[in-house]
Amino acid sequence: MDHVWNAFIICSLLEDCHQCQCILEVNQCLNQSECFVEAMLDQNRRMRSYNQPLACRHFCSKCTRVISGEENISKLVSVIVVSQPCCSILNCWVHLHSPCDRFCHVHSTNLNHCAIKGCTRPVLSGRLTCDILAHQESEALHTLRGKSCFRLHERLELSCTIHGCLANVQIGAKEDEGDEANATQAIGEEVYDVEKKPGKKKRLHAHFTRNYTHCKELIVAPCGIIHARETMHNAEGVGSVAVKTHPTHVFFNNNCQLTLHVKDDPFFQDIGLSVDVFHFECKHSKSDMFCQENCNPATFPELKTDDGEWYFNSSACEQTNSWFSNFNPITRGMKPAKFDFFLDEMILC
């Protein structure tokens, strides 16, 4: 397996150097896995700065429409659930030395502090928490949850509480509500309810394991060509989406918020912003008049043919999701340089 990975990396780097008309230079070191890190980082930086080289020159009838002699190019913004380990400190972009680390080398001193959020007391020997009993109980519960017997007991209790299809629907609805309520919770953060006083509970937030980035953001043409990608560390912010491309039209599932964000930006004055057809019909409220008036794809005549059909495939992102997300199990455990390098090569292929 190691020989296959090394051959893949070397061939990919040589092809990139051939396109750039340069020579591949690597450091001589004893560890084979570290020889090509700098070369991979250089390629990653070029990909991030100049996007996919072939996609930038790509135009076809599925992603480009000529109206009155002017090109109308449509792009889609796709959110891919492929995450990678990162430092547990919020908004820290320093790479981890190992995917198993909780903190980068800049914030490594936090390993001596209690894993409970907001607590700076020193940890006990062999533990991740301090001498406070409630914090130790949270760590013990975290350890217990990682054992198979705990998960099997949870499944047994859940099966005993389900009575018929109606109960299944109610449980599913409650889980969905919980997911929405915890949407602002940091990735990798665990929540524990501990009894502070009789009848009262206090919620503790802890980081016992490594953190993960939020997602990968892709810019996809309606024909399926991926133009660029970007890592979203903490959330899918509209401000991060707003600086990526300059087509004549952009589909995005949250364009109603993006339109408000860039309403005074001259860069977006000649760019149409609409929600893709699938999300507009299923996810956006009809009572939201701003969204209905400004982000309805039907209000943009360039998106429809003379027969009233949709000219562009606004579901290209969902189709790309099903393909790109399959690489998630392969990338688990990869260091950041190899993680981005591998995904870029899969896009190029």
Score class of each variant (00 low, 15 high):
D270L: 10
F280H: 09
S274E: 03
S285H: 04
N253Y: 15
H284M: 13
M289L: 07
Q269P: 03
C291P: 00
F267G: 08
K286V: 04
Q269R: 13
D276G: 14
N294I: 00
F290G: 05
V275G: 06
T259M: 11
A298T: 04
M289S: 03
P301Q: 01
D270N: 04
E302G: 12
F278R: 02
E281F: 06
C282L: 05
L258N: 14
H279Q: 06
E302W: 13
K286T: 04
N294M: 03
E302Q: 15
K304R: 09
I271L: 02
N296S: 07
N255H: 09
L258Q: 06
D276A: 07
D276Y: 11
K304F: 13
S287H: 12
N253T: 15
H261A: 03
H284V: 05
M289I: 06
F300P: 08
L303S: 00
N296G: 01
K263F: 03
K283H: 14
V262S: 07
C291I: 00
K286P: 07
A298H: 04
D265A: 00
P297T: 01
V277I: 08
D264R: 03
S285I: 06
D276H: 15
E281M: 04
H284E: 11
K286D: 08
N296E: 01
V262M: 06
Q269H: 10
K263W: 03
S274F: 07
D288H: 10
L273F: 13
V262Y: 04
D276S: 09
N253W: 15
Q292I: 04
N254Y: 13
D270H: 00
N254S: 13
F280R: 04
L303R: 05
D264E: 09
Q292E: 01
F267N: 00
P297N: 01
F278P: 01
D276T: 15
E281C: 08
T299N: 05
S287T: 06
F290P: 12
F300G: 04
T259G: 07
H279N: 08
L303P: 00
N253M: 14
D265M: 11
C295P: 05
K263N: 02
S287F: 10
G272E: 04
K304N: 08
D288M: 06
P266G: 03
Q292A: 07
K304S: 10
I271W: 02
V275S: 08
C295W: 02
E302M: 15
C291A: 08
L260V: 02
P301C: 03
N253S: 14
L273R: 11
